[in-house]
Design a protein around this nucleic acid. Sequence first.
DNA 1: CAGTGAGCGAGCTTCCGCTTGACTT
Length: 857
Amino acid sequence: MSKKLLIVESPAKAKTIEKYLGDDFTVKSSYGHIRDLEKGNDLGVDVNNGYRPNYVIPTDKLRTVKDLRENAARVGEVWLATDEDREGEAISWHLCEVLNLDPRTTKRIVFHEITKPAIQKAVLSPRTVDMNVVNAQQARRVLDRLVGWELSGLLWKKVKGQLSAGRVQSVTVKLVVERERDIQHFKISPYFKIVAQFFAKNTQGKLVTFKAESPTRFDDEAGAEGFLKKCINANYTVNNIDVRPTRRKPAPPFTTSTLQQEASRKIGYSVNRTMSIAQKLYEEGYITYMRTDSTNMSESAILAMGAEIVKQFGEKYHHERRFKTKNESAQEAHEAIRPTYVERQSISGNRDEQRLYELIWKRAMASQMADAELEKTSVDIAISTHPEAKLVAEGEVLKFDGFLKLYLESTDDEEEETQVMLPPFVKGQVLEMDDMTATERFTRPPARFTEAGLVKKLEELGIGRPSTYAPTISKIMEANRGYVVKESREGEERVFQIITLKNNQLTKKTGKEITGTTKQVLYPSDMGMIVSDFLDEHFKKVMDYGFTASVEQEFDHIAEGKTEWSSMIDGFYRPFHTDVEKTLKEADRASGERILGIDPASGRTVLVRMSSLGRPVIQIGTGDELIEKEKPRYANLRPGQSLESLSLADALNSFQLPRALGEYEGEVLEVNTGRYGPYVKFGSTFISLSKGEDPFETSYDRAVELVKIRQEADRPLGQFQSVPFTKGKGKFGPFIKWADLYINIPARYSFDTLTTQQAVELIEAKLEKEANRYIHHWPEDGISVENGRWGPFVKFGKAVVNLPRMDGVKMTADQALTLTLIDVKKIIETELPGAFDEKKTPAKKGAAKKAAPKKKK
DNA sequence: CAGTGAGCGAGCTTCCGCTTGACTT
């Protein structure tokens, strides 16, 4: 009975595989990597000694490793079944190192799909760890550390502390910066397009209208007007009819990147949201693994989908397809993202989960369905008075829907034309025109990236991996040192000309439209631009979009055993490190400073720059202009302004704050902007302006309105247990404040007309819930066992302690009820050793525990 | 919470890629 231990990367996978393998194997998970380069003050790599890596087990992996060691000791043999890609091979090798296994003899198996036949087959042909592939991973890891650590360290000295740089994140930021500049420098030019509206009879003999457009466009109004003038008193005849059958093919099933794009376009999810919902679906067993670069599906899945399509739609709709992954950097360790059981058309779960699942199901099914067949019609219309010109009407008819029955891939282009059906025509047919218009249009600058659009670009460039797309996007948008911000901005009004020809009369008018409106798109911050420019100037090679692709090729050579990994790293590192040293010595601090001109009032220099706090600032007066001990005047940038594009006039405008608005009820009213955004000051009370409100525009009336709202909110609504309560609107929506308690007001109540009676009900309900929160409560010990979102947990002062698991399973509330104070103290003692030794207050313990992981390197 | 921002300058920060659970508004 020599049982075997099989180690995979994902616990969800472990569960499934254990089911397929039967009693011979125990299957455990490594939860990804188990060792990493040491994270100290040095590089964690010995650059003077063949780049020897210093690997350690991170503290949060100690438990996993301990568990694996115990399991390994219990069995006769350990098998490694980590993913078949560079990282997976390395994890297997690290497991050998940590579990004292010989990599030359330890059995290593791989599967690209988690199906019973695939796994049973894999077990029959084990191999051993491929050290060449492991070395390619070590090279990847070491290179990323050297680049990341040295560039970040340089930024701390030349720009600001806390900043980060790396092979992936820095070019990602550069993409956003360059796109923004392309947009800023784009020259919008107007043109006129000509569209005529005609009448014709449809197949039922009913008169309908259709549109035809001139293929020629005009650069100016005179040209467009000339065209229309020429059409006065013209006759229009059908000159040529071109009918062309076309086909459309379904897109391949989802990879991580395409899932993120479509979930963003079709249901508006951020990449993070998509991934966390997909993770949930995966853990529930509804879909295959969600971090993949492959469009391949298992044979059994292809068969099952075929059967389902035939069953639901008939044989005609079925077309078996196998998709080749186009992306060169793909490592294809997993399948495409597909439903595990195609018969399951919908799932239980919350709305988000259902919508994402439905998207995945449809996309996978559609990929095995027949082409859609269309008929495209193009009709040329001759103009009697204008023989060298023509108008063209285009239409499209769907002859057979095929895969479109289920799924149509979206595009980023907003101006997606919907299908137009044309009436039937015969050659020579005379058409009656309703009107013809020349409308002024404008060339459009490239669009800013959405999160998912940026992921798409990264994938095209081979930068980053499926598991890192979402974290990379989050990284560059991090709150305090964001290089990139996601924002929606309002557009501007634009006037355009319209010339109409109707009843042989020309008329002109102007129209208005809003242009440049954006929704949840990525803008570079000032810091993003400064850092990106700095790195680009001094590290051309690393900042080149092709850098990752070229080092990937070198990693491939290592994996094939053609190159020794440390010599590859040496070839990169020597010149790179020289550049770092040189930049450190020679480069100026990067502050993005720009002189805007002279302040007419004082005659002093006006400039913008990044302050040492990492905030952009406008400054008046510098160096010699200031008299002794005098400080320059400072002002902040307003939302939407940037260091790079701020004008002198806008800069001077910002010095209008603080602005006195007058008096109200004998108190001074003033508007200003502070650390927490713009506010109105009323005597000694501060009232924040609502989001997007411009302090430069705030009127006296608006300020009084805000004061009144505040006074209203502060007026007690009533009393409960002789303690007054008030209502207000906060970060998390409307609330009632009673004593120290904040109680959310649910949407079913009307905030404005909330009665005292209703408020009391809400307070009572909250108190009731608070009471139920505790499973045990020992206030004198500062200990409680409470019901949390993830089940029961122990609270010790401010510290949170998890209850021990039984075979990895969490304790239920009922089980927690049986715990005594002694039991709970023991649990705390194990988790927080020495918690009861000294005479420290529980609160201090909590603080100490929180600080601990940071200090321990 | 509410007008900072050089100047003097301790000691801190950081990478990419695998994974999940984290934790108590």
